[in-house]
């Protein structure tokens, strides 16, 4: 009896997923490499946007690979080369180290599209990049802070995934400003390390408060982390938001975050649009019909237009239109 179980288990093992892996013809084969959707609300919206756009009905045979680290992403590109796809879409975990692999893809005749984050390399190695200008996001935020005209800027700086374009883009303008101006100080800096984890942010804020550090601004590099800090502030009974002691800033414009901005609990939210799929879809279809892609700058980029929201000016219509 047990022997039969053993044989059955073996059969189930082998056949169970051979069934899910068949290839199809006549559709444009696309390989999409993205980060973990559980990472943040932004990522989840981004993944959903891609899965909804690159469907069979739309003419694509799309394979989605979740590769959160640089080396796994390179392996995924090689896998797609072996699988002989037509296009590869990449949201890079790191900005460097792509040259060799992109060369291999080019040699194999595969078109490479970047989305969400930029890569540091020769523009000829990719066909187009539909990205957000992260640096501009950071500069917008810092500009908004400056516009408040405060006497002193004591900032609790919560960074996102270290080494990612998003983190670098949002951190650098702040750190540069703080070095340049005397009344701008980063009183504590912390990070989720390799994550955008709200719980880590909460612990960082808690530790800072326990150590008696004072701050009047929280510059959190995404909504989730801002939420973590707010949880720590609430636990200690410290007020925040429009009429509070601490200014709260987040990024990504999740719907729930924008609602907090509207309610006056948060002050600022910078937009980072996760919707790149339609643009790339249009580009691929243009190329397939023999046309050329328009609207790219000299780095072959198409930059998303992004804005920000603050308590004084945000409306419910904004939340409905922009909230993730």
């Amino acid at each position: 009896m047990k022997k039969i179980i053993a044989v059955l288990l073996a059969l189930v093992l082998v056949l169970s997923f051979a069934a899910v892996s068949m290839a199809e013809e006549d559709l444009i084969k696309v390989g999409i490499i993205n980060l973990d959707p559980a990472e943040s609300g932004y990522r989840e919206a981004n993944v959903r946007n891609l899965t909804e756009t690159f469907t069979k009905e739309n003419g694509y045979d799309a394979t989605f690979v979740t590769a959160p680290t640089a080396d796994k992403q390179l392996d995924a590109v090689r896998g797609f080369i072996t699988a002989d796809v037509d296009c590869i879409l990449i949201s890079a975990a790191e900005t460097t180290g792509w040259d060799r692999v992109l060369e291999e893809a080019k040699n194999a005749g595969i078109l490479v599209f970047l989305f969400d984050r930029m890569i540091d390399c020769d523009p000829s190695l990719y066909t187009a990049a539909v990205v957000s200008d992260m640096r501009k996001e950071g500069e917008t935020a810092v500009g908004w802070l400056e516009g408040l005209g405060l006497e002193e800027y004591k900032i609790l700086h919560i960074q996102g995934q270290l080494g990612s374009a998003a983190q670098i883009g949002r951190s650098d303008p702040l750190t540069e400003k703080c070095e340049a101006e005397a009344n701008w100080t980063i009183v504590r800096e912390g990070t989720g390390g390799d994550t955008w984890d709200p719980n880590e942010a909460r612990k960082i804020a808690e530790a800072a408060l326990d150590a008696g550090i004072e701050f009047n601004i929280v510059y959190a590099e995404n909504d989730g982390m801002a939420d973590g800090v707010v949880a720590a502030l609430d636990a200690k009974g410290i007020s925040h938001g429009k009429d509070g002691d601490v200014i709260i800033m987040g990024f990504d414009c999740n719907k729930w975050a924008l609602e907090k901005v509207l309610a006056g609990e948060w002050n600022f939210d910078g937009q980072c649009s996760p919707f790149q799929a339609e643009k790339i879809d249009a580009m691929i279809k243009t190329l397939a019909e023999g046309g050329e892609i328009e609207g790219l700058n000299e780095l072959n980029q198409y930059i998303n237009d992004e804005t920000f929201f603050e308590t004084d000016t945000i409306t419910q219509a904004d939340i409905d239109a922009y909230g993730l």
Binding site: E39, T195, D197, P198, N199, E200, R202, A231
Partner: peptide, 11 residues
């Protein structure tokens, strides 16, 4: 309950 939300990746 501490955070008021759930992050399945890091809880």
């Amino acid at each position: 309950a501490r955070m008021g939300t759930l992050t399945p990746k890091t809880l």
